[in-house]
Design a protein around this nucleic acid. Structure first.
Lengths: 329, 329
DNA sequence: TTGAAAGCGCTAACAT
DNA sequence: ATGTTAGCGCTTTCAA
């Protein structure tokens, strides 16, 4: 019996397959120049032996490191975004659960409109890139320079996507409000330049149309202050509204603050339903009924896809969004 | 003129210093067996040349990777902690700002009472360990096995610490409430087995004693539900209380929910002041006046200390905690 | 106290 | 299509 190996190396695989290390290397990296039969055989042996290439050696030799790059787009100030917006930390949490135990680095970037910086990320990417909230332009540019990209929001068609059913969630939220007897259902939407913003709005619109309700909309960016201001405006314009569908919890928390400030009760006078099920939902007063986005699960899925190198061209996976009932309805 | 180097290697340093690579390596790693004069000279040259060793090569040769290990202690369920408690994501945000651009991995661990797991972390640690909320026992154990440790909370004496002035912050909070004319100031404390819990309580106690106020205390763990329940009990027992000092924003958000639920107004009937200045503060209704902990800055400082390898034995740095006034007072 | 030499496990020219 | 040969930049015996 052979001496126990502490760690399997490419050499072991080569020997078992009766080929050279170079060939094994080519197979691992999906490089051309290997006979198909040989390639299959080597792949089989790699699987059988449960061989895992050493990422460090690979990095040293190839001059690039294995890592998952999470890229968020900078809306205004870059600093403190992670700590201040629940979404990003949930994405990181999801990625981390998968990276745990593996020898893969997690890099975080926040990009504005500096194309050079974007190209640099693609250039240095290794295991792959997870797009937290990239607009189509950015996503397409990245995808052009690096095939291993997965977006967590609907974006350029060419980019593999693991998204949530935003439109369906919004539709369900409005339907729920309607079932509660509410008939003057306003909406505070997210930005029109994000697919989340657009799809949640679409879901709202479809619902009120089917239900024969009026369109009472306002909105802006996914920030608490925006929700606060929009709710004030809405209440001013439509003093009789009895419910609000708000496109994210942060805004919904702001909306609740505004509604309270006018002397109205939540949910007595106005029901409000948020979206995301983030920490903001549970800290609001009253705590928010909301549509739960499985952000952590989505990020984990995207990461696995990247690590398994199984991101096909038009890949698309859609996660359902679920109603969580709390005190604001 | 010499050919332009794309990257400085240990060889360049050795040549400049007129010694061998081995010697430079020994100096870098603070290994014994180098003449003091030579050591100083090599260090000078390293600084002059701004030489930064390649972490990947180092990892390959030494079989260990450069990384910052952030360890959080698991209170109950491990999953989802990052996404659900603002503190941790702020710590990560702080660490990341420092790691950005450097070739250092960020690993996150959450440990319960599995000593073997703790030892494994120490074993594999490289650049160092940042303790987010480790109790003395854990911290001491880790420190015994790995010198490069920095804690973000007061803990075992042997462990270098970058902490916040919790007692001072709590004292300032109560004083502020008193200045507002409040005289029945209750407190919702954190757990007694954490230094934050203990020190914030100590600050409260010192203040009410100096001010000649009664001690109206309750508390438990740093969770929203606990704040909610404690506030209810407090209001039951002392119906006339007019202010609450709550040891963290998450609990404070819960307290505000409870106070509202009894029909009282915040801040009209009861003023509440939180601690941390996390996302929870701004999502509460009304938004929370709170004592700001510079968590991101603290984590960044700890990380830099580790990376610069300048963690002395009894290192201790204390960050001030600042009052942020919002609507709950 | 110091240096020479042999790798760490892999990739990437360059041959064949 | 495949193998041979150098390294990647550092650590680490082993000699001196």
């Amino acid at each position: 019996m052979a001496k126990a190996q502490l760690k399997l190396t490419i050499e072991d695989v080569a020997r078992a397959a009766g080929v050279s290390r170079s060939t094994v290397s080519r197979v691992m990296n999906n490089l051309p120049g290997v006979n198909e039969a040989v390639r299959r055989e080597v792949k089989r042996i790699i699987t059988d032996l449960a061989y895992v290439p050493d990422q460090t050696a690979r990095a040293l030799a190839s001059r690039q490191h294995p890592a998952i790059d999470v890229v968020a787009v900078t809306h205004g100030s870059a600093l403190g975004w992670l700590g201040s917006h629940p979404y990003y930390s949930r994405v990181l949490a999801g990625v981390m659960t998968v990276l745990d135990g593996r020898d893969v680095q997690l890099r975080v970037h926040s990009v504005g409109d500096d194309d050079a910086a974007v190209d640099a990320i693609a250039e240095r990417a290794t295991a792959g890139i997870v797009l937290a909230d990239a607009p189509p332009g950015l996503a397409a540019r990245l995808r052009r320079r690096c095939k291993r990209v997965v977006s967590l929001v609907a974006t350029a068609n060419s980019v593999p996507t693991v998204e949530a059913d935003n439109a369906g969630g919004a539709y369900a939220a409005v339907t729920f409000l309607h079932g509660l007897g509410r008939r003057r259902i306003a909406a505070i939407h997210g930005p029109d330049d994000t697919s989340c913003g657009v799809n949640r709005r679409a879901g709202y619109l479809r619902a009120i149309e089917e239900l024969g309700l009026p369109d009472l909309s306002d909105g802006g960016r996914f920030r608490r202050e925006v929700g606060f201001d929009a709710a004030h405006r809405l209440l001013d314009r439509y003093p009789d509204l009895d419910a609000m569908f708000v496109a994210c919890d942060l805004m919904a928390a702001g909306a609740v603050q505004a509604i309270s400030a006018t002397g109205r009760g939540v949910p007595h006078d106005v029901s409000v339903i948020g979206f995301d099920d983030s920490i903001a939902a549970v800290c609001a007063n009253p705590p928010l009924t909301t549509m739960r986005m499985p952000v952590e699960e989505m990020a984990a899925t995207a990461t696995r896809l990247l690590l398994d190198d199984s991101v096909a061209g038009g890949y698309r996976q859609r996660f359902p969004v679920e109603l969580v009932v709390r005190g604001s309805t």
